[in-house]
Design a protein around this nucleic acid. Structure first.
Lengths: 210, 210, 210, 210
DNA sequence: GTATAATCGAGACGGTACGTCAGGTCTTACG
DNA sequence: CGTAAGACCTGACGTACCGTCTCGATTATAC
């Protein structure tokens, strides 16, 4: 939607965007949100602060951009085995979350910490536009996973009276809950338990329809 | 836990604690975390900053204290009707979250925002002690709810092979997920759907073992 | 002095110079030096910043150009009545100074302020070339006035042992001093007093020629 | 006039003022106005920037404070020999001006430059309060010199129909004029010429033995 | 009572980062 | 070439808030 006419003036240097995002991501993962300063990002990216601010008007905006980028590329495939596909998907989500949870923590510190994840949620709360943006990113990714469930319903692998959106929440919600609130680990065994719990009542019950 | 010996010198003014917490809570609910400054809290409470810092060494500590206070009193009762009890419990949790979600938002703004909830999670991530503390608060409250489920299992209202902790996560997790991440509403109909989904596979299957 | 060879490529648009100077002058008189930004001048003149910088390499250069332009045309005539001629001359100088003194001041503000005059002096201090330039402008104008005095000396209206340059300084210096330093008014009565003072000892003393 | 009641809170550290002013003066004299940055002053003074800004809200304010300090202590004495006293006074003024004129200039550069003097005048023009302040400083110093002239009038060393304020302007004005405008030197011979010119017509003309 | 000790109010202080502004340079596309 | 447009770099500005420190004035217990 930019669509800035026949392109007047010096065009933006796309490489600059890249360098900034990389610098920001590196600093974010190493030092965490608080210790990341715009000055340092600009410095590392070899860019003037003004140039950075032209693109992201706020530290929060920058961080959200970084996170959005990190979340963007989650390949999802529908093999027909709903359980296997869900496992695969949840593991990717969990990996991403665990990475951000550890961001900025001294090597080996107990990672019962929400780290960057919470900061991003907070950032989204502070700026309406960021809320919209980040939710769009998540919605896009979730849509694919929800499609997975819907397709399973269509081919009879799951009950037809399911609210797949709710089922999805019950798969993913617990991960965020542990990361953001209780600080408990989100590892593969846990994911299996979650999937067990969610699918237990979701399979079609041959004999008696609810 | 303070245990300050045979008490020498001028004793602390307990009323001061109260005034600070009230001031902080008010500002927090009205303006949100970022816009709350220690200077202003102290000013409002009619208290010197030193006095405040003697009690809470950090802005984060103060905020967490405020939130902990707000979460403290959630009565839970076990009527024997597991579905009714869960509904009651989840509604209380949802109410608390929705209140904090709205904190600092301009009246009537669309409250698709994590507001204070995220800030607290972030604060907990920044200070190990706060993480421990806030998790203890949650653990205590959760323990009661998990007890509810366990008792239901014992009396045969739920399957015996359930992991009640996981079941609990699948009940509560979606609420936090919506509040903190997707920004979707967490209202009574949604709670019913969540409970439906969770209990669907959790009831004992007399005739047919899944 | 430019002397750009056999003139290749597109010739400069002379009108551009004019528009820039006009825009700069207007902004200078309205807002004063500090509030005048090159971007705004260019914008007003409907000119690219590059174009402006091709002509004046610095904000200071531009401002000096503007001021030089304003000072340029001070007609001086030698009627033979030294006192009347001096009065005429000093009034013109005072008018120019008073105009610049008021530049950038909120309407009706007490104009005990050096305004643009001081800024130009400062600009001249910052760039050697501007110093030379502005001094040349003043020298040219002063030379005419000094010529006035010299002619008076020649025809016996003033003492022959006078250092006319010093006499000139004592006529003009006080005006700048008031404008730049004390902020006191420089009006017609004051000019008369200055001329009185300067001429008092400068007239030939019939009885005893020093 | 501060008069801040019974002195509440931590009192200002007077030494901080001193250190800041010294640092500022040093940097000013070495580098000139433009190259003096608040950050560096604070750094040199071993002081937080905020501490500096608590005292002087603007770079201009700080510089004016520095200059005011440098001008403050000009001893004037009335020996009865008006010409000698004036010479003494003007030399002090000229010394101060010449020092500031040279501020920030590369060693040995031609000092046909207004340097700091003009910047201060400009600063005074930008901030009304600074104008008032600096004029008060000058007024105080000038009052003493004008007193010198008045006393000379009283004892018959100068004509009684003199406007001593105007006479004073004609003594001092030329110095500022040369410094700020023409860039010509202000040395001892010049001072003598100025005094000659001013006193020539100012002596009582009874027998007037020049 | 009088020393001792801690609390409280007030506000200065050091520090860190923020986001902004303006001056000047560079890079496009177009005449 | 010159011009328009606008991105870019540089450097500094003034601000905000945090958490610490230094006063003087209280208010308690201990001797």
């Amino acid at each position: 939607m930019p669509e800035r006419g026949p392109s007047r003036g010096r065009p933006r240097d796309i490489d600059v965007d890249r360098r900034i995002l990389i610098a920001a991501r590196d600093l974010l993962l190493v030092n965490g949100y608080a210790a990341l300063s715009i000055d340092e990002v600009a410095d590392r990216a070899g860019v003037a602060k003004t140039t950075l601010y032209r693109r992201w008007p706020t530290k929060d905006h920058l961080i959200v951009a970084v996170v959005a980028l990190m979340q963007d590329d989650v390949p999802i495939l529908d093999t027909g085995d709903i359980r296997a596909d869900l496992t695969d998907y949840l593991r990717q989500v969990a990996d991403g979350l665990n990475t951000m949870r550890r961001a900025g923590l001294p090597e080996g510190a107990d990672d019962r910490s929400a780290g960057v994840v919470a900061e991003v949620a907070a950032a989204a709360a502070r700026h309406a536009d960021l809320g919209t943006l980040i939710r769009a990113v998540f919605a896009r990714r979730n849509a694919m996973a929800i499609g997975l469930l819907a397709s399973a319903v269509r081919r009879g692998a799951l009950r037809t009276d399911l609210d797949v959106a709710v089922l999805f929440d019950q798969l993913v919600g617990p991960l965020y809950y542990r990361i953001l609130v209780t600080g408990e680990p989100v590892d593969h065994p846990y994911l299996d338990l979650i999937i067990d719990g969610a699918l237990r009542g979701a399979r079609p019950s041959h004999a008696h329809p609810a």
